[in-house]
Design a protein around this nucleic acid. Structure first.
Length: 295
DNA sequence: ACTGTCTGTGCTT
DNA sequence: AAGCACAGACAGT
């Protein structure tokens, strides 16, 4: 009987876009199974949850989340150990992680496109949501720079530094081509002020963060936000913190892809040998930030 | 194109 | 040595 209904309702659509989102649901089912368990699950169990063979589950999981099932589960488990230092539950991610089971699951369900997204998918658009932005001057390392802050209702989406606001805005717009960016100086006055305070090296209020990345990136960025101002960590220490001691290079990559400068203090990560490491906006700025924080 | 089986590799115990 | 997660190659649909 669905046939007649289909016939009755399918005169118009000429070319089905062949949505690849099908597999996403199954991958997310596997994610939720681990969310419920609060840690890694045997591949067979995940495969059952997704309705796939273990091999296929591995394949699609990697495509959709950018990580492996095991790594995802480990990140969850590590996240549950974190609440001991529950001082920063003010951010979206930290709150999700710090409260473990319940909130993590809600976190994933709320935005299917939030954590379960590959970097390329993220670069490919994000959701067609309304984002607000503001900008203002900021002096760093003797340079007069501009600070661009982009936020959603959930929190800070992006923070960029540069000499030209238009260029910075174009950069973010290019990363989120589906989002609508609207200037909103008034509503973001306090947010901009808080980011400026961070640039000056003062702690300021803890800002809610709405960043999108892979589970691994999210874990790294959350770990960075736990580094107190005035302190630094090595890439290796951050890797160990997120439960993947061997993923030093991946941590470096995640730092480089940090969308929210200052708010997620990737400048507090330095090399084990004392070198500064890298920084997207130049080592002078990185050093200036660290000096300011050391007061 | 999508899927499962087999298999080798590397890591952990 | 054994078990496991993972990914490449391959074949069936």
């Amino acid at each position: 009987m669905p046939v007649e209904m289909l016939r009755a309702t399918t005169p118009a659509p000429p070319s089905p876009p062949a949505t690849p989102a099908d597999g996403r649901e199954r991958v997310l089912a596997a994610c939720r199974a681990m969310d419920d368990a609060g840690g890694p699950l045997p591949p067979e169990q995940l495969a059952a949850a997704a309705g796939w063979s273990t091999r296929q589950l591995h394949r699609r999981f990697a495509e959709v989340t950018g990580t492996t099932p095991r790594a995802y589960g480990e990140a969850l488990r590590a996240a549950r150990l974190g609440p001991a230092l529950a001082e920063t539950r003010d951010t979206v991610l930290d709150a999700a992680f710090a409260t473990g089971y319940g909130s993590v699951r809600a976190f994933y369900e709320q935005g299917a496109a939030r954590l379960g997204m590959t970097p390329s998918a993220w670069a490919g658009g994000g959701r067609g949501e309304r984002l607000l932005w503001t900008a203002g001057p900021c002096s760093l390392a003797g340079e007069d720079l501009q600070l661009l802050v982009v936020a959603s209702l959930a929190g800070v989406v992006a923070v960029r530094l540069g000499s030209d606001v238009e260029a910075l805005l174009a950069e973010v717009a290019g990363e989120l081509p589906l989002a609508q960016l609207a200037r909103e100086d008034d509503a973001l006055t306090d947010v901009l002020g808080a980011v400026r305070a961070l640039a000056r090296g003062s702690a300021g209020p803890v800002l809610p963060v709405d960043v999108r990345g892979t589970a691994f990136q999210a874990a790294v960025w959350a770990a960075l936000r736990r580094i107190p101002a005035g302190q630094t960590r090595s890439y290796a220490e951050v890797a160990a913190e997120v439960g993947s001691p061997g993923a030093v290079r991946a941590v470096g990559t995640a730092c480089a892809r940090n969308p929210a400068a200052l708010v997620t203090p990737c400048h507090r990560v330095v090399r084990s040998d004392g070198g500064l490491g890298g920084f997207r906006w130049g080592l002078e700025v990185k050093r200036a930030l660290l000096d300011a924080e050391r007061g």
